[in-house]
């Protein structure tokens, strides 16, 4: 579904990502793991169009997307969340999600200004859809609260809801469990599995290996901007290169 071919991204003279190739299969949950600074978020930025690769190609549904602007990429069906939550802070939860439904609206300026029936009908439909998403993510209690008043874990779920509101076929999650407690993490895992059951494809960056084992069909391991292993979770976990990478990173962080 998503195919990365020899992706390299250099900042100044340094390669944050070099010669990365892997694929994300439709209907699967793929994990993207690796020590801090391995280039995971950079890769997500490249896929979502916020950044362009120095060289290499990204194909989505057999179409090259590496030179498209982010909104076009989203319109093709890729949505994402952010590691450092980036909600529209002063807007309510419901408003945040309705912004995510931007591409499902048609009403132009004029019909809004004149309050034409088509505009009103569309607004009603968007609100109903948003309400359904809010229910699905269990956010009913906060629907009208400003987004920045919510707890960390709840904000993460709002971000997922907002991404889902764009009707993606591929969802990119950047450390979705960071700041969540064990119960919340488990619930999020269930949600991702239920989304997979509906044929949504997911690429998720995560550190929590229990979570990875719970949701991922396969994982890709990144270290120093290169893919060092990929495959089923158990196989990859036993890979000596991967163990080294994590141990090495740990030694470094202790040093």
């Amino acid at each position: 579904m998503l195919r990365l071919k020899n992706i390299t991204r250099q900042f100044g003279g340094l390669a944050a990502i070099s010669q990365v190739s892997f694929s994300v299969n439709a209907g699967q949950v793929t994990g993207l793991i690796g020590p801090n600074g391995a280039g995971k978020t950079t890769l997500l930025n490249l896929i979502s169009g916020l950044d362009q690769p120095t060289s290499g190609e990204i194909h989505f549904l057999e179409r090259p997307i590496h030179h498209l602007p982010p909104h076009k990429i989203n319109q093709l069906g890729i949505a994402r969340t952010y590691q450092n939550i980036r909600l529209f802070a002063e807007m309510s939860v419901l408003e945040n999600i309705i912004v995510g439904m931007h591409t499902q609206g048609r009403a132009g300026l004029l019909s809004a200004a004149l309050m034409l029936p088509a505009y009103r009908a569309e607004e009603r439909r968007l609100r109903e859809d948003a309400a359904r998403l809010i229910e699905r993510l269990g956010l009913q209690a906060f629907a009208n609260a400003p987004a920045d008043a919510l707890s960390y874990g709840d904000q993460r779920r709002v971000e997922i809801a907002r991404a889902l509101a764009t009707h993606p076929t591929l969802l990119l999650l950047d450390e979705p469990t960071a700041g969540m407690n064990a119960a919340e993490t488990a619930r999020l895992g269930d949600l991702i599995l239920s989304l997979r059951a509906e044929r949504l494809t997911v690429l998720v960056i995560e550190h929590d290996m229990t979570f990875i084992a719970q949701v991922c069909d396969r994982v890709v391991v990144l270290n120093f901007g290169e893919v060092i292993a990929q495959g089923a979770v158990d196989v990859v976990r036993a890979n000596p290169l991967v163990i080294d990478a994590y141990l090495g990173a740990e030694e470094n962080s202790h040093a």
Binding site: R86, H102, T166
Partner: peptide
């Protein structure tokens, strides 16, 4: 709403298809 989103965070707005 699109402008409000852009005002707050251009990049996020763009990845929402705006």
């Amino acid at each position: 709403r699109a402008l409000a989103a852009i005002r707050r965070d251009e990049n996020v707005a763009a990845t929402m298809g705006i």
